[in-house]
Design a protein around this nucleic acid. Structure first.
Length: 491
RNA sequence: GGUCGCGUGGCCGAGUGGCUAGGCAGAGCUCUGCAAAAGCUUCUACGGCGGUUCGAAUCCGUCCGCGACCUCCA
């Protein structure tokens, strides 16, 4: 069986394509990062997890990946571009602090969250405010090429002009003539735009605006879509391999990014566009406006009206990975509980490796499991299938422990290595979050367990049951196995 | 209204034109003084109606239901 080559579903073509880097072994990966005006919720985390897997797997395959994920700290407007207010400034006004304090506060919070979910840090994490010069230069290029116009201190991208030569809408499957039907209702008084689909790439700042910069067109702020184009070009070049983000960024954000890059550099910037699907709650997209979003801490503590109990970050990570990134995932207590148990089973089987005795021959073919995992990951990062294969293998691991299956020491170490690589390195799960029991407790438990063993040997079951019941009351569970008694603290 | 996607067993969630997804729950068994835990085994399925085909849950049409995007969104 061949595990084949990596193929990736490319949103641009709508098909799975064999992944061939532009300049192997180097791979450029750009992901649209958070806008740091409030806390990231679980839906945001799902998208970043998707690309965490992409980054981990590409690295596993031996590629030298440069992973760039930006921080949007300016230029993201609330409501309509022409009349809106910057999200960060709005939040700053609400919290009565400097915009850059908001940016710092929620950037810190975001980093804390990514650590919690074991998301690897990008190689470069550029901030929009640190790249104003690059953005101004890009605007200038677009103007020079005739794909933008200046009105009253603002600069707009000229979509109509662009569409004469290029295909605006190629990514999102939109057609300009269909968009045109909506023109009348969208063109209301006071518009500076010539055409409703035009978008601001530089926006004149009002006197009250705190974060603003000088430019050839006066004092203002860069447009939201522009930062990703400017920063991806700077760090990954005019054309790079993979650009990722949530499905909801496909239009207009990513469509505009293509237009800006083509309008300035003359080159379509991305070879493979990847879009992660939405996290839903009771069938609707998780969003703050619907009041159905979970913040990381609400999830962990279970302190949320829609949650029965708290779940660990690794349970959530595993839960997300049990669905393919291009499908929506519905968030529910039942599903989370199933994942919690499944993950526990997976991890406890991996722990058995150290207790398995090698044999002089192997009763099953280790390579088959390994090849299946490769094949499913190569199929557009299909983590649910990969996990299914890992569960199939767990059956063997458990039987090895019971000596109903056998492996040579060589095969055993290959299998063990495979599980460690896939579960910890590629899927990015963490073994134990609660291995923090103080040593003294272990020593005491050893004494208690030996006392109970003695009473059992004397058939003094009243005493042995008393010990077990009392321990239960303080949330310590005893488990009698063939090889003795183990214990664990209930979370 | 336009564009796109989805509808799978009690729940979650993959996939394929004919050959076991997997997890959780349920059932049986093993282990056990009892219990718990764990392990092994195992049942229930592809929204309705047409069509293509030797054969479709998988392809096509249609209907029903649901969702996302259409300048706030990961």
């Amino acid at each position: 069986m061949s595990s084949g080559q990596l193929s990736i579903y490319n949103s641009l073509s709508g098909k799975k394509e064999i992944f061939e880097p532009i300049n192997a072994p180097f791979v450029g990966l750009y992901v649209c990062g958070p806008t740091v005006y409030n806390e990231a919720h679980l839906g945001n985390i799902r998208t970043f997890l998707t690309f965490d897997i992409v980054y981990r797997y590409l690295t596993h395959l031996g590629y030298k990946v440069r992973y760039v994920r930006n921080i949007t700290d300016v230029g993201h407007l609330v409501d309509d571009v022409d009349f809106g207010e910057d999200k960060i400034e709005k939040r700053a006004r609400l919290e009565k602090i400097e915009p850059m304090e908001i940016v710092q506060k929620y950037t810190n919070s975001f980093h804390h969250t990514t650590q919690l979910f074991n998301l690897l840090n990008p190689n470069i994490e550029p901030a929009a405010t640190g790249h104003i010069i690059e953005q101004i230069e890009m605007i200038q290029k677009i103007l020079n090429n005739g794909y933008a116009y200046e009105v009253n201190g603002s600069v707009y991208f000229d979509v109509k002009k662009y569409a004469e030569k290029y295909n605006y809408g190629e990514l999102s499957g939109r057609r300009l003539d269909e968009l045109l039907e909506q023109t009348r209702e969208n063109l209301e008084g006071g518009e500076e735009k010539r055409f409703f689909a035009d978008f601001a790439i530089w926006k004149k700042a009002s006197p009250e605006t705190i974060m603003k910069w000088n430019s050839p067109w006066g004092i203002g702020v860069p447009g939201w879509h522009l930062e990703c184009s400017a920063m991806s070009t700077k760090y990954l070049g005019q054309k790079f391999d993979i650009h990722g983000g949530g499905m909801d960024l496909k239009f207009p954000h990513h469509e505009c990014e293509i237009a800006q890059s083509v309008g300035s550099e003359g080159i379509s910037p991305v070879k493979y566009w990847m879009h992660g699907n939405m996290l839903t709650v009771n069938g609707s997209k998780m969003s703050k406006s619907l009041g159905n979003s979970f913040l990381p801490m609400e999830l962990i503590t279970g302190n949320h009206p829609l949650l029965d109990k708290g779940y660990s970050p690794m349970t959530v990570r595993f839960f997300f990975l049990q669905a393919q990134y291009r499908s929506t995932v519905d968030f529910s207590n039942e599903a989370l509980q199933a994942s919690e148990k499944g993950l526990k089973r997976l991890l406890s089987s991996i722990k058995l490796f150290d207790e398995i005795k090698p044999s002089d021959k192997s009763s099953f073919i280790v390579k088959e499991i390994i090849e299946k995992c490769k094949k499913s990951m190569n199929d557009d990062f299909n983590t649910p299938i990969t996990i299914a294969h890992l569960f199939d293998g767990i059956k063997f691991i458990n039987l090895l422990k019971e000596e109903k299956e056998t492996l040579t020491s060589e095969d055993l170490s290959i299998l063990k290595n495979h599980y460690k690589t896939y579960v910890f390195d590629i899927l990015g799960l963490l073994a134990d979050e609660d291995d923090a029991n103080p040593e003294i407790l272990s020593d005491v438990m050893e004494i208690v367990i030996s006392l109970r063993k003695k009473s059992k040997e004397n058939k003094d079951y009243a005493t042995s049951d008393f010990i077990r019941d009392e321990l239960n009351k303080v949330k310590i569970t005893l488990k009698d196995t063939k090889d003795g008694t183990t214990w664990e603290v209930e979370k």
